[in-house]
Design a protein around this nucleic acid. Structure first.
Lengths: 328, 328
DNA sequence: TTGTAGGCGTTATCAC
DNA sequence: GTGATAACGCCTACAA
């Protein structure tokens, strides 16, 4: 690879001048500029970003931490972040944390050594202290690890309320809930929403809630238990689509007809929900939008660190498909 | 961040000595080593990877090019590559190319400026010439862009033959094919496999093949056309699972019962195939394995460039689920 | 066994 | 307008 020095020789100028035309700053005569440009062209010269990074202390790289990119919820976010990073000439690093705080910390250190400029993080494992003394900008996405770190989320509780109310309005009397991990703010808020609607019902007890840990497999089991134990359940609100799909399968397994005998509603709006039979009614998150927004906020913070970021909350939208009956 | 100089001062030695203990090379007295280690500990010193990269010309970063991480086929590969990169202390960069060769080239240049050490690439758009004069190691995954570049793939043609034969053996008489983009080697080979089995059948004509472009939506349309035009079709081989799921939906749409009136088999073995109703029979690729292997090969080439890599081919396995009848 | 110093490729500060 | 030159933080001859 050619260096700035090579260019300077060919153009018969100093490296300083080359640097000036490269970065368009400082005065440089039109004529010499042309010479330099020609030399750059001739050598097909490209500046070495590593040297630049060393000097500037910035790498033009941002990272995204997700638990596991194989979970269908995350690729949409990842794509949004990558698109945005790319549009601003940042390189995109992806880290699968497995919700493991040790792994998270290891990634973090490795990235700091590489002068990472900022991180978008979907996590619930990092403690407040850990995050506090990190000096690179961080924006939380989908979850709120703690109050001190700016986040982009959706109205989880309100969305859950809407979901459960839809079940009621479409005729469900006994509504079960498959919940997500309660240490994840989004999951907790969705459970809160569920409770807000049904807590006062005469039939309600805590036993109508089973944890599915946000996974297909556990939700399959949870739904089977729930439906076996309470055969009169005619509605299920799952805290995410993967679990709703697990519940769908469980119903199929038990010979329960959806939506005739049982309505199921999910949360997230992942594509998979539209490919099941019946297709899944759900509360759709604007996933691409929130991913994009989180990245924009991060880049803004990187480029003007003095401005404080303020958290944002987006709205979910109800998507009627075939796993619930239409509102009567 | 503390620097090597800070450490050297505290330990009362030269930076050279610190560097020696850091990299464990050269002689250093046990006692001074301890002093240095203590100083490192005290300052919580971590070497600056950017400076290292500049010196070595290597970044300890590898990239993965995929068309679009939102396509459910890619996250499994991405996870495998990331895991392996991480295990070898490499940082993982993800690039969505949208099958756009201009975008690919732009990424490539940006990464070269960052001294990227190697690239795993799932692509069919890069021309032979483009790839030839790239000096960083490249390994192709899932597809063979051209013969000069080492690749990790599966036995696509053979797998397709098995798939179509399964349809025949389970009683299908008229078998349609929803094909993928013919400029992708994997898709082409699968079509070849289909043809190898049915080309000589009396009923066969090219009209039994419709392109679905590897997408759900196009396959949905393709299947509808196929099934409307040839109502006697009782088997469909889709060149990937996304398209098979599209075909499943099309059948549902037309009131055709799967697998009673129509058998559908896919290819890939993505998780989504197991969540549909009926669940999808498919030829499963060892996705994690091939992703892992491609990365291993890449890292090996990076660390010993003198050794030539040789392409590898893995086997697909037949997974009987519910979208086809069992072999009689 | 340890230290000095040059260089990796850029940028920015200061002269001229 | 332009050119030296000192950083950025690290590594490795080469000396000592």
């Amino acid at each position: 690879m050619a260096t700035i020095k090579d260019v300077s020789k060919i153009a018969n100028v100093s490296v300083a001048t080359v640097s000036r035309v490269l970065n368009n700053n400082g005065y440089v005569k039109e004529e010499t500029k042309k010479k330099v440009l020609a030399a750059i062209e001739q050598l097909n010269y490209r500046p070495n970003d590593v040297a630049r990074s060393l000097f500037k202390g910035k790498s033009k790289m941002i990272a995204l931490f997700v638990p596991d990119i194989r979970n269908p919820f995350f690729p949409e976010l990842a794509r949004a972040v990558e698109d945005n990073a790319n549009a601003h000439n940042y390189t995109f690093i992806l880290c699968n944390t497995d919700n493991n705080s040790v792994k998270e910390l290891t990634y973090l250190n490795a990235l700091l050594q590489k002068s990472i400029d900022g991180i978008v993080i979907v996590s619930n494992t990092m403690s407040a202290e850990q995050l506090r003394d990190i000096k690179v900008p961080i924006v939380a996405l989908d979850r709120k690890p703690n109050e001190n770190i700016p986040s982009v989320t959706v109205n989880n509780q309100e969305g859950a309320i809407q979901a459960v109310q839809h079940l009621k309005q479409s005729g469900c009397k006994y509504i079960g809930h498959i919940s997500g991990p309660q240490d994840i703010s989004s999951a907790k808020d969705r459970t809160k929403g569920y409770l807000a609607v049904v807590k006062e019902e005469s039939w309600f007890s805590e036993d109508f809630i089973h944890s599915g840990n946000y996974t297909y497999e556990e939700a399959f089991e949870a739904a089977k238990n729930l439906l076996t134990r309470f055969p009169n359940i005619d509605g299920i609100f799952a805290a995410n689509d993967m679990m709703a799909i697990g519940a769908l399968k469980a119903a199929e397994h038990l010979g329960i007809l959806v939506p005739n005998d049982l309505s199921i509603i999910g949360f997230d709006g992942i594509q998979m929900g539209s490919t099941t039979s019946p297709a899944l009614t759900t509360m759709e998150q604007p996933l691409y939008t929130i991913g994009k927004r989180a990245t924009e906020m991060l880049l803004q913070k990187i480029e003007s660190p003095e401005k404080e970021l303020v958290s944002e909350e987006y709205q979910v939208t109800f998507i009627q498909r075939s796993s619930t009956k239409e509102r009567r």
